[in-house]
Design a protein around this nucleic acid. Structure first.
Lengths: 339, 339
DNA sequence: TGAAAAAAAGTTAGCGCTAACACAAGCAAA
DNA sequence: TTTGCTTGTGTTAGCGCTAACTTTTTTTCA
């Protein structure tokens, strides 16, 4: 194993000069010497020891990305999550960082994971306010949260306009004549992305006098899509004609459940999703959904994180990206019959 | 920041005793002392410095997972890759390892990445023989390759019976009366997973006197699914009635292309895929495909890697998992017309 | 020309941890 | 008892690197 010492010996200079030639900004070592050292290092196949550097310099070039573990144990089965993770890895790796992935079940070991490796920064996916407060308080390093609704000022956050997304979904149904609607998502009781989407949806419906009964606001965490569908479509005066699902990935579960129950989409039930994953285009009928740009979100997240790392004093920043409606064929046009 | 030294001072013992109490196997420190030290450490909120440990002990508890970068820059857009990655993270994390994810474009920096962090082991996805030889030679640490066909003996490899998969796909077409077939996948000219699937497919067809003309073996790397479809379905005596695609993810591209070109599946063209991703069930018609168990593959991979880490002298191992046919509706039954 | 300033090096002292050995005390077998 | 073994603990010496300082050399300009 080649170390700085070996290179120093071969070049006839001190270790420090080698260190400066290889990692410095070029200001504390002369050009020719630096070039000579670099060529010797290359020739000897030098590979720096990141642990040693990290220990001595207190800077690891490690960035952690943390996401909540799912019941199935594999959060990356959700295409949104894996697409986002991939984009983050892509950007940060190209900037010379190393990425550690953590699935978090117990929030108390986040600090442990970050500190143990002296992570220079971290990206979090979809946490709640109380979690963010705790994490922010315990970890005085650059952190960027995504899809979070925190009342905390000093927190950088990249998200989308979830409320507007909910409004757009509502509009899509209303414009096609729907008046009785339903919502489904992983409701947690805490304010967050899902609650915002629901709020935008509900507010817009209310404004137009459409109906979203309490029992038509369903949490997918507790029941399966199939059970929910059965309940929703039971004969009733308020039987919904449309269902807004908080993500394409879950909307897909409803497509599958509908298939098993012989419920036709959109004839028996119209559906709208959220995210605009490639998946939505593959479904038949094509899924009408609220589009967000995952890659852009990941890039913004990295931008802010890198800025914080470069200048730890830089102010925290919140970026809310826009969303738009992707209209396809999963919402039935009820107007012809109504007019 | 609390260090071993602080704990040692508070407990009135040497640093070494603390180190042994916290990380040892319990054999070199007395029970009561160890318990007392552990409770002091907990109380003081001690978090070990992994860099220091790694430097001193030459053991990092880091495992790297490396995958080839894709042209779009995000290999995790392929559901197979992200599902596998997620399962690996899940297993290794539960064993106390930290996972670094690397997208590899330039193979020469794999060694750099592994050595720089003293990775204890690494998992590779889908490499070719020459790449494996180089990596294996440069890195004397536990490595497990997946989906690889290497002639090298001393290499641990977890894969599936790709050849059989190709045979099963051929059978599926033959059994339903198809005689003129086509294949499409990311052909690279090198032996590997895709080549094996093609080989099994071609051999089985040949044995039954079915036809797979040279110009019906297409590489998706060069042309789009749409272009390939156009070529394949141009009027000709050998116009194929069925297309075997080397992965569900790519098969999906053909579904989309077919939609744009008004080609009906399976009426105008039958399709079979490979992997059995959830996706395949969502497509209409449901995709007939060769099933592999991704999670099992990931678990096997981790098993072998962990064994190598525990016992570096343990022999290398190759595990070939079985595959089976998942019959759905993307292959048309031509027999009624033929008989 | 010479003194101050700047640039290019070298020296020292760790970062936090653990291998490897040293040492003492207790215990069983000879 | 002696010899050897086991067990618990302390000591020493780094792992490979860099921050912070010191020293030497070069440059600048009055």
């Amino acid at each position: 194993m080649v170390t700085l010492k070996d290179i120093a010996a071969k070049a006839g200079v001190s270790m420090m000069t080698v260190s400066r030639a290889l990692n410095g900004d070029g200001s504390r070592v002369s050009g020719p010497t630096a070039a000579r050292i670099r060529s010797i290092a290359e020739e000897m196949g030098y590979i720096p020891n990141s642990s040693a550097r990290s220990l001595a310099a207190r800077s690891s070039r490690i960035i952690a990305i943390l996401m909540r573990d799912t019941p199935d144990g594999n959060p990356l089965l959700d295409p949104y999550t894996s697409a986002f993770l991939g984009s983050v890895v892509q950007v940060l790796q190209s900037c010379g960082y190393y990425i550690m992935v953590h699935f978090v079940r117990d929030f108390s070991d986040i600090t442990f994971r970050l500190r143990s490796w002296s992570a220079e920064g971290a990206v979090f996916l979809g946490l709640f306010d109380d979690e963010i407060r705790q994490i922010r308080q315990d970890n005085p390093i650059p952190l960027v949260f995504t899809d979070s609704y925190s009342s905390l000022r000093q927190v950088s956050n990249v998200g989308i306009d979830d409320y507007k997304g909910g409004c757009l979904a509502a509009r899509a149904f209303l414009d096609l004549g729907h008046r009785n609607l339903a919502f489904c998502g992983p409701l947690s009781g805490k304010p967050g992305v899902i609650a915002q989407r629901l709020q935008g949806f509900a507010d817009t419906l209310a404004k137009q006098g459409a109906i979203l009964p309490q029992n038509c606001v369903c949490s997918i965490s507790e029941r399966s899509a199939e059970e929910i569908l059965k309940d929703l479509l039971a004969p009733s005066a308020l039987r919904p004609t449309g269902l807004f699902v908080s993500s394409d990935h879950i909307a897909w579960q409803f497509y599958k459940a509908a298939g098993r129950l012989n419920i036709r989409i959109p004839d028996d039930l119209s559906i709208a999703g959220f995210d605009d994953l490639p998946l939505g285009r593959a479904l038949i009928p094509g899924l009408t959904t609220v589009r967000q740009d995952i890659q852009k979100k990941a890039e913004k997240t990295c931008d802010i994180l890198l800025r914080h790392i470069k200048d730890p004093a830089s102010p925290s920043e919140t970026q809310i990206l826009d969303v738009e409606l992707a209209e396809r064929d999963s919402i039935k046009d009820l107007r012809s019959g109504a007019c």
